[in-house]
Simulated assay, not measured.
Amino acid sequence: MSTTVSAAVSAAPRTLRGVKPGQTVTVTKLTGEGPLRRRIMDMGITKGASVYVRKVAPLGDPVEITVRGYELSIRKGDAENILVE
C-alpha cells in the first residue's frame, strides 16, 4: 500500500514554492489568470526556463530565485502558480 501512496505523491504537480534552496528546476507550466500570469512571464519565468532557488525566507515569503541570469524575489503566492519538474 505504501507503494501506491508514494506513486500518488510523486504524481502530484510540484510548484516552485516546494523547491528547497540550492535546487535547480525547470518550469513546466504557469497557472493563474490575466495580470498575474503576465507579470510572472514579464519577469522571465516562462515554460522551459531554468530556475535556481537561492533562498527562502524563514516564514516562506519571499522566495529568492535566479532565472535567466537575474536575481528575483517572488511571493510564495506567486510561486504556487509556477509548476516545475
Rank of each mutant, 00 (worst) to 15 (best):
M1C: 15
S2W: 12
T4Q: 14
V5Y: 13
S6D: 10
S6P: 10
A8P: 05
A8W: 10
A8N: 11
V9T: 05
S10G: 04
A11Q: 03
A11R: 03
A11V: 04
A11E: 04
A12H: 08
P13K: 02
P13N: 02
R14Q: 04
R14K: 04
T15F: 01
L16A: 01
L16N: 01
R17Q: 09
G18R: 00
K20G: 12
K20T: 15
K20N: 14
G22S: 07
Q23Y: 12
T24C: 01
V25Q: 01
V25F: 00
T26I: 07
T26C: 05
T28A: 05
T28N: 06
T28M: 09
K29I: 02
L30W: 07
L30Y: 06
T31I: 08
T31K: 09
T31W: 11
G32K: 03
E33F: 14
E33V: 09
E33A: 14
E33L: 12
P35L: 07
P35Q: 08
R37I: 13
R38Q: 08
R38P: 05
R38D: 09
R39M: 12
I40G: 00
M41W: 08
D42A: 09
M43W: 05
M43V: 07
M43L: 13
M43P: 10
I45L: 02
T46S: 06
K47S: 05
K47T: 06
K47I: 06
K47D: 01
G48F: 06
G48P: 03
A49I: 00
S50H: 10
S50G: 04
V51I: 10
V51K: 09
Y52E: 15
V53P: 02
V53D: 02
R54T: 05
K55F: 12
K55L: 14
K55C: 11
K55W: 12
V56Q: 15
V56W: 10
A57G: 07
A57H: 08
P58G: 14
P58L: 12
P58Q: 15
L59W: 13
L59T: 13
L59N: 15
L59S: 14
G60H: 05
G60I: 03
G60E: 06
D61Q: 11
D61M: 05
P62T: 15
P62G: 13
P62V: 14
V63T: 13
E64N: 07
I65P: 00
V67G: 10
V67C: 07
G69A: 14
G69Y: 07
G69R: 10
Y70H: 10
E71Q: 14
L72N: 09
L72W: 13
I74E: 04
R75A: 09
K76P: 07
K76N: 08
G77F: 11
G77M: 12
G77D: 13
D78P: 07
D78N: 13
A79T: 06
A79F: 01
A79K: 02
E80I: 01
E80H: 02
N81Y: 15
I82D: 00
L83R: 06
L83A: 06
V84M: 04
V84I: 05
E85P: 03
E85T: 11
